[in-house]
């Protein structure tokens, strides 16, 4: 064997690679594993594709006859119908994110770097539990408990900070406005952002923190120079998780928001905004085929928005982990 190989080196070389390849491919564990992972990858992709195809096909009637829909009291075009919903959805989600992220980062830092261990463990556990509370519960809490309690705050904001467009307008009780919806959304996404951020902060390399401390950094300065830069990409992806959840949240918004249709910046005014998901949930039960097509179209738009935001988040994370 070895002599023949020495005599004819070229064929030996050629036959070698396929042989090893065949040998590795025959391991049953590898085969099953690669089959499973490729299969489930394909399955996810296929599901997404099917959803997109379904949404597109079923919303075609609405896109084609984009004039007016009969049966609606005030007939509007598809664009006029969808755009305010998109605005309301994104507006509420962004407001929720702006409220939730600073608080979540604060709590996460407290748990990871300030609280004594005896306090940190139960606190972390509680946050994880909060993340599992179903949204109906948050909706109930928001609608029944929160709405009346926010009223004085809103009146104060309206009176003294009314020159800021956000707080302008004429709020009226009950305060089932976009501000309340955003607060409820913020509370809902707070746990997941906190939990992920805490996890990242805890992974800050010990050596980095000691480098800062040894230079004479206070605890706060250590966090600023080491922990936050290290955790930044993690906080961004956590926020995007939260944003995704806020965008698609249905029940909570449905239960605290009096719907309306406008591009108003006045978040304290009632009956001015609505979100895509809440709108679909409230309208679909008694929808005519025409209206149904429109609802499905808005669903398609939501699908695309979520996709785009995810892509942006990935880009941000990729860039900040590089740098």
């Amino acid at each position: 064997m070895s002599t023949s190989a020495a005599a004819t080196p070229t064929p030996q070389k050629q036959s070698d690679p396929p042989e090893t390849k065949a040998r590795t491919a025959k391991r049953p564990g590898d085969l099953i594993f690669s089959g499973l992972s490729i299969g489930s990858g394909l399955l996810i992709f296929l599901t997404l594709l099917l959803v997109a195809v379904f949404l597109t096909i079923r919303s075609l009637p609405a896109i084609q006859s984009s004039r007016e829909v009969t049966g609606d009291a005030d007939a509007v075009s598809l664009l006029e119908y969808t755009a305010p919903l998109v605005f309301g959805t994104v507006f509420a989600a962004v407001l929720a994110l702006l409220m939730a992220v600073p608080v979540a980062v604060g709590i996460a830092l407290f748990i990871s770097h300030f609280a004594p261990r005896r306090l940190a463990t139960p606190l972390g556990f509680m946050i994880d539990l909060l993340a599992a509370v179903p949204s109906v519960v948050f909706g109930l809490w928001g609608g029944v408990w929160l709405v009346p309690r926010l009223e004085p705050l809103y009146m104060w904001l309206n009176t003294y900070l009314g020159w800021i467009p956000l707080f302008a307008g004429e709020p009226s009780a009950p305060m089932r406005n976009l501000a309340t919806a955003s607060v409820v959304l913020a509370v809902m996404i707070l746990p997941i952002i906190t939990a992920v951020s805490r996890e990242v902060f805890l992974q800050t390399p010990r050596l980095q923190e000691e480098a800062a401390l040894a230079l004479g950094a206070t605890r706060f300065e250590t966090i600023r120079t080491v922990v936050l830069p290290f955790g930044r990409s993690g906080v961004v992806s956590a926020s995007m998780l939260g944003l995704g959840r806020a965008l698609g949240e249905t029940m909570a918004v449905l239960m605290v928001l009096s719907p309306g249709s406008s591009f108003s910046l006045h978040i304290l005014e009632v009956g001015r905004h609505n979100s895509i998901a809440a709108n679909i949930a409230s309208q679909s039960a008694e929808a005519t085929p025409d209206v149904m097509a429109r609802l499905i179209f808005t669903g398609l738009v939501l699908f695309v928005i979520t996709f785009v935001i995810n892509a942006i988040a990935r880009a941000v994370v990729a860039r900040s982990t590089q740098g």
Binding site: L207, L215, G216
Partner: peptide, 17 residues
């Protein structure tokens, strides 16, 4: 105290960012 007494560690640890 740490401002007056500096320290160099076993593994180089410049701030990565």
């Amino acid at each position: 105290v740490r401002r007056r007494v500096g320290m160099v560690f076993q593994k180089p640890n410049p701030f990565p960012t």
